[in-house]
Design a protein around this nucleic acid. Structure first.
Lengths: 242, 242
DNA sequence: TTGACTTATATGTCTAGACATATAATCGTG
DNA sequence: CACGATTATATGTCTAGACATATAAGTCAA
């Protein structure tokens, strides 16, 4: 193996140890299944205490690059299920970060007792109040996405009185419902008459659809469907690791 | 605040400390920007050494739940850029895990010196050899996705002699090119004549497109375009955190 | 008021030990 | 040979210190 042992220690020692090992894994020098040096070997090699080596290895294990087994040692993990980190920004923030002017328009807002369809969509059993919102986001005055949202007022009572004619519900929720879990489903459809009109595209044009269900501590907050013109919008996901 | 101090210590202490703090953050009890107790306060509260508290806080910082600032303290981070983990499995594995029968068909394979278009697609400057592959995946004998791939032989010389008539190139690469980075772009198109024929769908039907560029250590490996029928295929992404 | 200097302090890293615990390897026995 | 008991060992967690370092806050002079 070729662990660097004489590099200048600008970074801290444990970071250097971690980087050295990471390099051996990422270059393929240590293939999946390879046993990396024992802690005591690294202690000898780097002339430090075991806690320092342990911190480096613990972080590599946390990052799923290695697997640690008592008595056996630490091993390079084999390529996991591929997964990518997909950034799905708040639409307003996304448009602004693209350097374009953001436009927002509330199409409709209804406060109602949840219908059977609403309950199914939110995944709740009891019938409470909900807010249904339809709105449109635009970039440089060109339609960017249309949004169709349902908010469960049992989880977010404040949403009943929020003024969604000025602030998009997504941004409002981001600031009022801090920590959440969500599930996204991405699919493709062709624009029907209504969608074509809202997005100012041709009927039959491809659209990217993001369905997002958001909850906090097993409590449904909101369900939203975002419809983007498929030829102009792209979702980019970066990916790292086998 | 309400840190539990008397729970049974089945998990280790630092994990309990981490879980306690995480709970306060996730329930919203400690909102974004809130300063969490200093290390020395937690040391006193839990009656342990600072290293134990430090390990808990370091992991929370690594998970981006808190931000640590010297002299100032540790603070609950405000909702980051939303990001979701999108699992993009190897197609064969995906179909099999769905309990369906997997079918594979090589449509074409060409070994050629990279054309200008190939070089642009792979993002390489020098003109070397490439393999271009077109193939089709099916589930229960129904077309599932068509694949159009380019492999840079400078990075993966073995691919020149691999038998892609039996094993899909994605699976082959997964087993021969362990650690990689990739970028995915997801978009929607409508099926043209050729795609419609390959997927056995109507011309004009919506399709989900995944473009994936894979490299290792700044070295391009492969570029692939996967085309799925948009109405039958969905990408699901789980998301956690603000 | 403003800017430069000093100080206090919380985190960052590290040590040289310790005991706990899971388990691979070995040994003994039927 | 098969199987259960024992042992050795690598990791997991923890301690009670230490010094380094970035920086918020206070101090003082222009």
């Amino acid at each position: 193996m070729s662990l660097a042992t004489d590099a200048a220690d600008k970074p801290t020692l444990y970071k250097r140890i971690r980087a050295d090992i990471e390099k051996c894994i990422l270059t393929g020098e240590w293939p999946p299944g390879h046993r990396i040096p024992f802690e005591h070997e690294l202690v000898a090699r780097y002339g430090c205490s075991r806690m320092t080596v342990n911190k480096a290895l613990s972080e590599l294990a946390q990052a799923d690059l290695i697997e640690r087994r008592r008595r056996a040692g630490s091993f390079v993990r084999r390529p996991q299920h591929q997964s990518a980190v997909l950034k799905i920004a708040d639409i307003r923030a996304e448009i602004i970060s693209l350097g374009r002017s953001y436009g927002y328009e509330l199409i409709g807002r209804k406060l109602r007792t949840a219908t059977a369809a609403d309950r199914a969509r939110l995944g709740v059993k009891k019938s409470g109040k909900v807010v249904a919102i339809a709105c449109r986001h635009s970039a440089d005055n060109v339609p960017f996405a249309v949004e169709d949202r349902l908010i469960d007022l049992a989880s977010v009572p404040n949403a009943a009185t929020a003024d969604f004619s000025r602030e998009p519900p997504g941004s409002w929720l981001l600031h009022h419902v801090p920590w959440t879990e969500a599930e996204h489903t991405i699919s493709a459809i062709v624009a029907d008459h209504r969608a074509a009109k809202a997005l100012d595209i041709a009927v039959g044009a491809p659209c990217l659809v993001i369905d997002r269900y958001t909850w906090r501590s097993a409590r449904t907050i909101t369900a939203v469907r975002l419809l983007y013109p498929g030829d102009s919008h792209r979702l980019v996901a970066r990916f790292k690791g086998g």
